[in-house]
Nucleic acid binder design. Structure first.
Length: 599
RNA sequence: GGGGCCGUAGUUCAGCUGGUUAGAACGCCGGCCUGUCACGCCGGAAGUCGCGAGUUCGAUCCUCGUCGGCCCCGCCA
């Protein structure tokens, strides 16, 4: 129950706020100010009462002194955490020796001459102060209180500053911000669509966009030349720390350009924005790596370059060894690769077992290991290798006494998956990752297609509108899986923060692509007819990129989940704990929408 | 669909091998306090141990189920 009622409106003097609490310094000494904000903390001495008053910009100490006004002091006794108040008073330097160096406003305080309680507050379910982090469940349930916390607010201020800087950069480079529909057409391929029933068209549905991909290409056909949008996208897939059903992309498209133009301009954008928002100077140019190289050296297409521990190929040695597991792998056109876990020869049997489980959990049949000692490599499997082979292995992995060498022999895909993962696990375990480092790179030359074992057909690795490399176009007819795409990703600290491609702008190539993907002419016509048609009316060569704005912000904010940079995110089950969405609806609504529940 | 971790005062947590009345800190309520700033001192209230079954003389603790949160695999062109 509220124990105190607000000051009646009729009694309010309606003085306007003059300053932010957090902005007061000795420069405002002796100024009469009106402040408004939340009671952050009170220190009631019976006589003097100190209040830390908080607003968006920070805290300032307000002093209520009975000698200044007995009535106001009495009223201040009622104050509790999170009451909303307005205070009139005079900014004063604090008495010598009572300054608070930990507070930006700590040189001054406000001597209150008037106090209005604009609104009392229930005792909040958790403290707005920072000492202890409430559980995420509680934070999301009371998100409006969570968003009052300083550490949370700074994430959103950062987000704002990033989008502001990005808009400014793109504006300066002649990009036009153009909005595209949220109620649009469901398309095959890609993620599951969120559907919106059409009341006026029984049995028909809009889909929320997975991205404005097709529209931005159409805008290029329209001649807008340079487009961008910071825009919400929707994908009905399972959630992760870095995946929400609705998320924000910085969506960009340009005409009359080649890959190089996009990479260099986007690189400039990232550098400019980080400089502006974070004062960070990034070395230029960013490293570049083909997909092939990234996979072979790091096992993933989004390598974390903050540490080494690269994968080394040992297939040639493995083929000559007596170790059946290794030889079989190579003979079956697989691979044997290893990494050097520096200094981990001391791992116990149990810890090795845990690493093995990490490996088998990702599809490996086992995890082979050797320990480097001053006498050479030692392991149960060492007996299958001639001494000079062991030496060769040690050399290739730059083994020093005390190191642990880990090997995986399998199909290429498994070897990369497992060692790529182990590399991250070990990098973390060995504390090789500098949390402050920002390591960016471009990964280029992605394969155009992948083979989907379940569906028994090719699927586009990026999307069906991605142009193949010119020199690989003949491969589409002979060996499609070897064809490379004009596609690129930008990677920051092991996270893909953006990706794009040069698009197909010729109808024939686009039709050929659909054919490869097993999309019939009729399907293509029904699903993408508008694009195919547009491509026949003078489509300029074009290409673009989309950044995951939430992921980028999260990394720069130093948080592990994009939930921390989204004001009202959803839980892993896609539920908003604050509003309790999704929820059931009135049967009449369903009827209007021509929808009948199946259960 | 699958694997893992978690759920105990308002909050963050502790709670031994299953055994007295389930604790601490912060917060909250009351009292005292004129230089505090994580104010201090005195006192007080506060628990469906997520929920439901089972095992047991006895369950916060063990088992099964279920609900919720988190991490991951699958999925995410």
């Amino acid at each position: 129950m509220l124990i105190c009622t607000p000051t009646p409106n009729s009694r309010r003097k309606r003085m306007k706020r003059t300053d932010y609490c957090g902005a007061l310094t000795a420069a405002q000494n002796e100024k009469e100010v009106t402040l408004a904000g939340w009671v952050h903390r009170r220190r009631d001495h019976g006589g003097l009462i100190f209040i830390d008053l908080r607003d968006r910009e920070g805290l300032v100490q307000v002093v209520f002194n009975p000698q200044l006004s007995e009535a106001i002091h009495q009223r201040a006794h009622q104050l509790r955490s999170e009451f909303v108040i307005q205070v009139n008073g005079k900014v004063m330097r604090r008495p010598a020796g009572t300054e608070n160096k930990d507070l930006p406003t700590g040189e001054v305080e406000v001597h209150a001459s008037d106090l209005e309680i604009l609104n009392p507050s229930l005792t909040p379910p958790f403290s707005i102060e920072e000492e202890k982090e409430p559980s995420e469940t509680l934070r999301l349930q009371y998100r409006y209180l969570d968003l009052r916390r300083r550490s949370v607010q700074t994430n959103f201020i950062l987000r704002h500053n990033l989008s502001k800087a990005i808009r400014r950069f793109l504006d300066q480079h002649q990009f036009l911000e153009i909005e595209t529909p949220f109620l649009t057409k469901s398309t095959p391929e890609g993620a599951r669509d969120f559907l919106v029933p059409s009341r006026m068209n029984a049995g028909q549905f809009y889909a929320l966009p997975q991205s404005p991909q097709l529209f931005k290409q159409i805008l290029m056909v329209s001649g807008f030349d340079r487009y961008y949008q910071i825009v919400r996208c929707f994908r009905d897939e399972d959630l992760r720390a870095d995946r929400q059903p609705e998320f924000t992309q910085i969506d960009i498209e340009m005409s009359f350009i080649e890959r190089e133009d996009i990479l260099s301009l986007m690189e400039e954008m990232v550098r400019t924005v980080l400089k502006e928002v974070r004062g960070i100077h990034l070395e230029s140019p960013f490293p570049r790596m083909t997909y092939q190289e990234a996979m072979s050296r790091f096992g993933v297409d989004k390598p974390d370059l903050r540490f080494g521990l690269e994968l080394k190929d040992l297939s040639d040695i493995a083929a000559r060894s007596e170790f059946k597991v290794f030889r079989d792998a190579v003979e079956k056109k697989g691979l044997v690769k290893g990494i050097n876990a520096k200094g981990l020869a001391t791992l116990s049997r149990k810890e090795l077992e845990e690493l093995t489980q990490e490996a088998t959990g990702r599809g490996a049949k086992g995890l082979a290991w050797m320990k480097a000692t001053p006498e050479g490599l030692e392991a149960p499997i060492a007996k299958f290798f001639k001494p000079e082979m062991l030496q060769e292995i040690a050399q290739r992995l730059e083994a020093a006494p005390g190191d642990l060498l880990l090997f995986v022999a399998d199909r290429e895909k498994v070897v990369y998956e497992v060692l790529g993962h182990l590399r991250l696990v070990i990098g973390r375990r060995l504390n090789l990752i500098d949390p402050k480092a920002l390591k960016l790179l471009w990964v280029t030359d992605f394969p155009l297609l992948e083979y989907d074992d379940a569906e028994k057909r090719y699927v586009a690795m990026h999307h069906p509108f991605t142009s193949p490399m010119d020199e690989d176009i003949p491969l589409l007819a002979t060996d499609p899986l070897r064809a490379r795409a004009k596609a690129y990703d930008i990677v920051l600290n092991g996270t893909e923060i953006g990706g794009g491609s040069i698009r197909i702008h010729q109808n024939e190539v686009q039709s050929k692509m659909f054919e490869l993907l097993g999309i019939t002419k009729e399907e293509a016509e029904a699903k993408f007819g508008f694009l195919l048609q547009a491509l026949q009316y003078g489509a300029p060569p074009h290409g673009g990129i989309a950044f995951g704005f939430d992921r980028l912000t999260a990394i720069l904010a130093g948080v592990d989940s994009i939930r921390d940079v989204i004001a009202f995110p959803k839980t892993q089950k896609g539920i908003c704990l604050m509003t309790n969405a999704p929820s059931e609806v009135d049967p009449r609504q369903l009827k209007e929408l021509h929808i009948k529940p199946t259960e």
